[in-house]
Amino acid sequence: MTGELLFASVGVILFALGVAGVLLIGHLLRRVLAFNVMGSGAFLVLVGLAQRNGIADPVPQAMVLTGIVVAVAATALALALVRRLYVLTGKLELSQDDDE
């Protein structure tokens, strides 16, 4: 197993952890963090799996840079909404009653 493949394997585990976190964690701030763990997992798989033969490939590296910026934007947006919800309701959780 090459080092790159190890990165990809860790990425898969991180992704699964992140998704489980988003599904299970009620606290919104921690849920945003879980989303970031999930994203990082996907990025690791992208760079790790593509370069598994030890040859550097700039294309997935550039894609990950793009992905990171998109994730930053999404995180900022999520934090702004969480903060707004906190200001309006004083809560950092989504209520379950209107979940249907």
């Binding site: 998704v19 294309v59 999520a78």
Partner: peptide
């Protein structure tokens, strides 16, 4: 929508890897 596109992105990563 973020989990949805996250799953999509992992799929893309696996396709690029393959």
């Amino acid at each position: 929508t973020l989990v949805g596109s996250g799953a999509y992105l992992l799929g893309v990563a696996l396709i690029y890897g393959t």
